[in-house]
């Protein structure tokens, strides 16, 4: 008698490779499952990557989807994770255009920000200039995701040619606003570094220190007014949601 584990393994393998029915199962019925599982999986992928799939073209995209289904390690019980697993799988492939992963990463950021479980509460006011230097924390939007790419993937469209790399880097922040809309912002590399530093440590003083170590011939203090200007702009855009006084621990 066929063992349950063997039965399931062979059926799963035939579905993943889109092969014929094993165990003498009726082919006319097995093809229903081949169709259902494939369409279901690709539905989640296609929805997340409309520009990447259009630029790659139907046939190549279909081949990538098929290969992913055959080889991908889909261990998450949550459907929402399928696009990210696909993205990770694409990253490990070397026979795809080098811009593809970057563009897909950018497209995935929208989904990531949209679904993020963080709450976005915007605190107005509290102009930075009125707060005392050095003991202020910023509240970074918890839904913000960053990308930095060697091509302007945020400007890619199905109708335009893919530009070559120029040595310039293009940063983006994708996040959910308090109104629940997902917003996209182009950032320069320095602003992106500043925000990444603030995600790890919300102290403005510490962020200035960290930045000064990466920029030759600067110190943290001289960076402060520039950082303040940038933060005010980021606050208006809700990438930063507000400020709070740093509570220092004694002891």
């Amino acid at each position: 008698m066929t063992d349950l584990a063997d039965y399931q393994r062979d059926i799963a393998a035939a579905l993943r490779s889109q092969s014929e029915a094993p165990f003498g199962l009726a082919e006319s019925r097995f093809q229903v499952y081949r169709r259902l599982v494939y369409n279901n999986l690709t539905g989640f992928i296609d929805q997340c990557y409309p520009i990447a799939s259009a630029l790659i073209g139907d046939e190549d995209w279909h081949n990538l989807s098929k290969a992913f289904f055959a080889e991908g390690k889909l261990h998450s019980p949550l459907f929402k994770n399928i696009p990210e697993i696909f993205l990770d799988w694409i990253e490990e492939r070397d026979n795809v255009p080098e811009w593809l992963h970057d563009l897909m990463h950018y497209e995935w950021l929208e989904l990531a920000a949209y679904q993020h479980t963080g709450e976005v509460v915007f605190h107005e006011g509290q102009p930075l200039a009125n707060l005392e230097q050095g003991d202020i924390d910023v509240i970074v939007n918890p839904t913000v995701h960053f990308g930095i790419y060697p091509r302007p993937v945020h400007q890619f469209s199905p109708d335009a040619a893919i530009p070559p790399t120029s040595g310039e880097w293009f940063g983006v922040a994708v996040y959910r606003k308090a109104s629940h809309e997902v917003a996209f912002n182009a950032l320069n590399a320095t602003t992106l570094q500043l925000l990444q530093a603030l995600q790890l440590n919300p102290s403005i003083g510490a962020a200035c220190q960290s930045l000064s170590e990466r920029i030759p011939n600067t110190d943290a203090k001289s960076l402060w007014p520039h950082v303040v200007n940038v933060l005010e702009q980021l606050h208006q855009e809700q990438i930063i949601l507000g400020y709070q006084r740093r509570t220092t621990s004694t002891g």
Binding site: A5, Q8, R9, I11, A12, L15, R16, Y33, L36, V37, N40, L41, F44, G72, K73, L74, H75, S76, P77, F79, I82
Partner: peptide
């Protein structure tokens, strides 16, 4: 709906 990974459909 899974055998060495999920298939996301009921079998």
């Amino acid at each position: 709906c899974s055998a060495n990974g999920h298939l996301y459909d009921l079998l």
